[in-house]
Nucleic acid binder design. Structure first.
Lengths: 338, 338
DNA sequence: ATGAAAGCGCTAACAC
DNA sequence: GTGTTAGCGCTTTCAT
């Protein structure tokens, strides 16, 4: 039998209210006697009393729960995000429900329903973006929402972003400075805002250098190892072999590297590569990879701060966008052609 | 204003109960008229009614929530576990609360309190094991518990395990067959059951081959990149350089590989290495790594099955242990000395 | 310095 | 075929 406030009240011969006040550390302001308070706290300890959170939530209309919806928890980008978010929220007394969509829109929809049904206090969402109907369901309910790692035009909300375009331009310009002209863009899902902005950065850099881009140098697809692998091998075996790859995320980059290796080529001697996201393996390859690092810890903390300020302070503060700079980490995966 | 059963009841001019019965698809067994049912369902849809789970949980004493406590969510071993577990539980209508301990016992304790307070229906726990007091708190409350990836002697519970000892013996014997005699064990936390069993496997194999183990060939420590790195570099720079490393997990193995590279040595020409856990990077290195793979998907599904059968069927079934075999994946990180 | 009572939103036993 | 009622465990207003 799990003890409730009543259990304790009965044994100490006081009312539920008194027990509640004591256990919530409000007995001083109610002027409850030291003696009563002590009896209650020690009995609670003895019985291993733990407040029923479902009851508290129902009464208070506050769950201290945040839903975190990510697209692929096995991608280190997201697992690190979860780690930082979980840690920050834990220290504030919040608990997180984790939802993995695997880039599946129905899943995203289902998870959002579950989270709304559970009356979470807020949601951190890294949306698929194939359709944004799901997002409106959250907005309609006025549930605080932090959109993570995506920018949807004409959708007012709180955003946590990095400057994708500038970050990409820094990397691609670096390739151009090293004399590269045949630079391939291996991209992610075409409807994804990151992909679009990274692609825009790529085009800008090449355009500024007056380098034209043949159609077959642009390989949109999806954020997978497989896509990176296939795009890389296909191009390396074509009759117009590029000198450099730009990979739109860590999964694609890893796949491309594997493709390069399987074609019997060396990075950076035979082919150069740069890409988005820093990841552990990047430093483990024979030639460590030059990458665009996203400040994940800061992004996670900003997401939490943004959400909590909306939850705890007022919901009438204006929408905010946290746009952080990326960091270009130069290692050794590009060759200077000059 | 969020709609409740009462909102709908008022508008359709029926009672809460009727609405509840309809929305729970029980109207046939209660003989509620088609017409009423239709009116209710369509109004619910129109109002975007979503059941308040806190209220349902309180009433039903069932939360459809499972707590998952892992030691490091950024380790692909755990992030994949979470992915599989989440997916399996989602399809059964359960939601997961994720708890990351970072090998910190206080965290583990705090998280367990939170989960118990939230009256989760079950817990999947990958415990730190430095102390097992925390685990008893769960057992005392009779909350279904699946202990994942650890075996605690004298603690009756449901376990999800792999055969660590046999898996290790297979790998170490393979090294011995290839003529290795100077094999170093780079281990994890000394109080960890996996580490102890893997170490036992290592000792057994060497003992069967009548090879003695000098003390400085055994490097217990913790499951970190750093420990792997330091152990490897220290030994490679000593005056008794081994011919092979056994790494007790993926983090240690990666660290050791980096250490080997930083010492200017080649795998497998200069030094051989095998280790526990398969991971993506293992196939990306110049010489792909020979590893002991754990059947993570099956482990995750078994954990879910075990937990759900205890939750949904009866709590009086005997404790069970799911002990799966590992798979020895031979790649190219060992040299045949014969 | 403490208690009584109401109510959060839901389900189900019992009533008619 | 549907309503009434009680109660899950908690917090808080109001009363004394």
């Amino acid at each position: 039998m799990i003890p409730t406030l009543q259990t304790i009240a009965d044994r100490v011969n006081v009312s539920r209210s008194t027990v509640s006040r004591v256990l919530n550390n409000k007995w001083k302001m109610y002027g409850i006697s030291q003696a009563t308070a002590d009896k209650i706290t020690s009995l609670a300890k003895e019985l291993h009393y733990l407040k029923n959170e479902a009851a508290r939530s129902l009464r208070e209309k506050k769950t201290f729960t945040i839903g975190v919806i990510v697209r692929d928890i096995t991608n280190p980008f997201y697992s690190q995000l979860v780690k930082f978010v979980e840690s920050a929220l834990y220290s504030k007394g919040y608990t997180i429900i984790i939802c993995n969509t695997g880039y599946d829109l129905d899943r995203e929809n289902g998870h959002i329903n579950v989270l709304l049904s559970r009356r979470v206090d807020g949601i951190i969402l890294s949306p698929i973006q194939k359709s944004i109907e799901n997002i409106f369901k959250i907005k309609d309910r006025n549930v605080p929402l932090a959109l993570f790692d995506c920018k949807i035009d004409d959708l007012e909300a709180d955003y946590i972003l990095v400057d994708n375009e500038a970050g990409t331009m820094e990397a691609v310009s670096y390739l151009i400075d090293q004399g590269h002209k045949k630079i391939v863009y291996i991209g992610g899902n075409p409807y994804d805002s990151n992909n679009r902005l990274r692609y825009a950065g790529y085009r800008n850099s090449l355009s500024l250098a007056s380098i034209s881009i043949p159609d077959h140098y642009v390989k949109h697809g999806n954020y997978s190892f497989k896509h990176g692998y296939e795009a890389a091998t296909q191009l390396l075996r074509s009759n117009d072999v590029p000198t450099a790859f730009f990979a739109a995320n860590n999964r694609i980059m890893l796949g491309a590297c594997k493709g390069i290796m399987d074609c019997g080529l060396q990075i950076p001697d035979d082919i150069s590569i740069v890409g988005f996201d820093d990841f552990e393996t990047a430093t483990m390859l024979p030639s460590p990879l030059t990458v665009i690092r996203q400040p994940l810890r800061e992004m996670a903390l900003n997401a939490v701060d943004l959400l909590l300020s909306r939850i705890e302070k007022a919901n009438n503060i204006p929408y905010m966008t946290s746009m952080l700079k990326t960091e270009f980490v130069i290692r050794n995966s590009t060759k200077n052609l000059n």
